[in-house]
């Protein structure tokens, strides 16, 4: 019996999954500690979305284990899900409902209602600078604003782990910058653990941790400078290209 290590915010081990003959994930394992900003880097089709679906219990895998703050997603799904906030790749807001109605619905899905819900909704909307749009219908908001609403929504129940699947796709530079800075600020200030899936390499700077996922497998992971050293190059882009065997210059993504 070894003493239990402090529970990671998110721990994935030996996770594999296939859809019919196509193997989407192969023996994936990693660990995210509170306060970590971890970029899950992979091209489209690398298995990021499948990984998200398994971690958020949309469905189960046959092999492997996912735990959130020590709670197994299969055996203690309620405790695991209560601790996580999720921003999915596609927008999942009700367009005909107002910003506040959307957030209130989400709060109720976590058993929060009444004045507590109202307070939390105000706080999070304030934080993303959309408090004055609280009664606007989502349909009237821009893409960047909708993303901010989704971020606020994912944080309404005060999760300690935040998962974002390609959150910046389709956003302009300004909205993208706001989103990244906001989330990184939350990591530092609240000790929020973040898994940020992206195919945009520049979204992980040198202070971030990175998991390189390619064709369903983790090729390397760790703090960005360490991963670069192991790959024998100086930039994350070069590391990514080296690891995935793509050496073409200036792919722009």
């Amino acid at each position: 019996m070894s003493p239990a290590p402090p529970a990671a915010a998110l721990e994935v081990s030996g996770l594999s999954h296939s859809f019919g003959a196509r193997q989407a994930l192969r023996d994936v394992g990693f660990r995210i500690a509170p306060g970590d900003f971890t970029a899950l880097l992979g091209l489209n089709g690398a298995g990021k979305t499948t990984l998200f679906a398994l971690v958020t219990r949309l469905y189960h895998s046959r092999q492997g284990r996912v735990t959130v703050f020590g709670h197994d997603i299969r055996r203690q799904p309620s405790a695991a899900l209560a601790a996580m906030g999720v921003v999915f790749q596609q927008s999942t807001l009700d367009l005909d409902l107002t910003v506040r109605q959307n957030l209130a619905y989400h709060a109720s899905l976590h058993g929060i209602a009444g004045s507590r819900a109202r307070t939390r909704i105000e706080e999070e909307l304030e934080r993303v600078g959309l408090a004055d749009r609280r009664d606007a219908r989502v349909r009237q908001l821009s893409g960047g604003q909708r993303r901010r609403v989704e971020l606020a929504r994912a944080l309404v129940h005060d999760p300690a782990l935040l998962l974002l699947d390609e959150p910046t796709v389709g956003l302009d530079i300004e909205s993208r910058r706001f989103l990244i800075e906001h989330v990184r600020h939350l990591c530092r200030q609240r000790g929020l653990a973040v898994l940020w899936a992206t195919h945009l390499i520049d979204e992980a700077d040198d202070t971030a941790k990175v998991i390189v996922l390619h064709q369903g497998q983790v090729l390397d992971q760790g703090p960005v400078p360490e991963v670069n050293v192991r790959a024998g190059v100086t930039t994350l882009r070069a590391t990514f290209d080296t690891l995935t065997g793509q050496r073409q210059e200036g792919g722009g993504r």
Partner: peptide, 14 residues
């Protein structure tokens, strides 16, 4: 298809 089902299913309730 639009993904909002996921919002419901990641709720901690059974």
């Amino acid at each position: 298809e639009m993904g909002s089902m996921k919002t419901l299913l990641v709720s901690p309730f059974p």
